[in-house]
Design a protein around this nucleic acid. Structure first.
Lengths: 253, 253
DNA sequence: AGCTTACTCCGAACATCGTTCGGAGTAATG
DNA sequence: CATTACTCCGAACGATGTTCGGAGTAAGCT
């Protein structure tokens, strides 16, 4: 059974994310910090991407042996989780003004900017275990929808849809090659493809609309929010909110 | 300069994706096929995920030495590209009926189903070099928007927004742990978090709306398409379509 | 027929990765 | 001052993607 192991790993990561880094009582003063390890990881990832982020490089960056890293962080996956939550904590949380749409637009764009500034995040494989900063972000994002008349499930659905959209598009844009390389790709594809078999693509490309190139973030965001606005307007017009069964898992403790 | 190398790699992958697998003229009959390598890769990925997909395992699966794989496929990245395009080719392409919304819903759901059936695809890191099947899919997807009054750029924007949304949400759902593990996670988080500091999250959770759990694909899809419908209605009402500069890159050949 | 040539296959090796082990060194605690 | 609980890390393990060089094979040419 891998289930037990996986759950234990989850617990270890969660403890790491939430528990305060208790200082050692005995032994020599640590030469480095968990915080420093995370910072070094963030630097390396920003500079050379996730693939280049190896435990050895981090150790070298901190002028320390490889094994030393493991006294401050249980493993690579856990380090990535810490890096992610740290990054989320560095950005300003969503603010709730009176205008829900402006609120959501603002945090969606901030979200977008985060992914643009740190494309390696879009490559993260982790199970997205929530750290304190991510959960705080979530709370604030939900709060931006207060007073819209949406029920709880709809609020969560809006936040996760918009966030999912942002991440999806960020990932696609992060995968786009730099212009020079993109042009070479397009030319190569053009030499292979038989455009007679792809009439719509040809017509669209004639107008300069090249699939796979360009940034349609704002376009889709506006469509998505138009749709949300329509739902909110419908609720305001008097249609009954749906109700659903309740089970407050987060209240367990 | 890595640029040259990268572009050469792009070209190699594109040639691989588009060029017919020319049979050898001399030497012993190949014991295995490129097609078999791709099929073995798909099987392995489906069964155990991307992380378990190693060249050695594929070789073992085909009862062949590791190095043999490299005579049929240039490397792992190229194999993944082939696997992806093969998968795309296996699904039915978007169909264009008279109702654009039903068309888009249908291909968006098919897209979604593909990611649900092959979650490893959401982990792909590749630069998304287009193969013949992906480009055919793209052409058909664009065709589903014909007659809506949208201009070329808007059509591309709609397809990429919806596709980006689907991928984003599929990735999030693919990252969700199985229920048993999710429950353990939620309980652990509950034991750490101070819900007094996250009032909106608490309120929402009381109604049973747990962030990070559940499937909001249909919800967001409907919002997004409502927004697109609003745009189309606006165009139909007589507002001028925007125009943009033209540069038909795909027509270069 | 025999030689050349162009292929397939693959054992062995290389560099790199995440991670573990065991011990040497260090400083607070009793 | 001995014990104890730490930090650090050299060395190693197993696994990964990939390359090299050679052995074997069969088609094409003279």
């Amino acid at each position: 059974m891998t289930t037990t192991t996986d759950s234990e790993r989850d617990l270890r990561i969660l403890r790491l994310l939430w528990a305060p880094p208790d200082p050692p009582r005995k032994g020599p003063r640590p030469r480095i910090d968990r915080e420093q390890v995370v910072a070094a990881g963030l630097e390396l990832a920003a500079a050379e991407g996730l693939a280049a982020l190896s435990m050895r490089r981090i150790a070298a960056h901190l002028s320390v042996g490889v094994a030393t890293i493991y006294t401050h962080v249980p493993g690579r996956e856990e380090l990535l989780a810490l890096m992610f939550d740290t990054l989320v904590g560095g950005a300003p949380p969503p603010a709730a003004t009176g205008d829900w749409r402006q609120n959501v637009e603002t945090w969606a764009r901030a979200d977008w900017e985060l992914y643009r500034a740190a494309p390696w995040v879009t490559r993260l494989t982790s199970s997205a275990l929530p750290g304190p900063n991510l959960l705080a972000w979530y709370d604030a994002a939900l709060a931006t929808l207060a007073g819209t008349g949406l029920d709880s499930h709809e609020m969560v659905a809006v936040v996760e849809s918009v966030d999912g959209y942002v991440r999806g598009l960020a990932r696609e844009v992060a995968a786009q090659p730099p212009p020079e390389r993109a042009a070479a790709q397009a030319e190569a594809v053009a030499s292979f493809v038989d455009l007679d078999r792809l009439p719509t693509l040809r017509a669209v490309a004639r107008d300069g609309a090249i699939p796979g190139i360009g940034d349609h973030f704002e376009f889709g965001l506006q469509r998505l929010l138009d749709g949300v606005a329509a739902l909110i307007a419908e609720r305001a017009a008097g249609n009954l909110p749906r109700t659903r069964p309740s089970s407050a898992i987060y209240d367990a403790g």
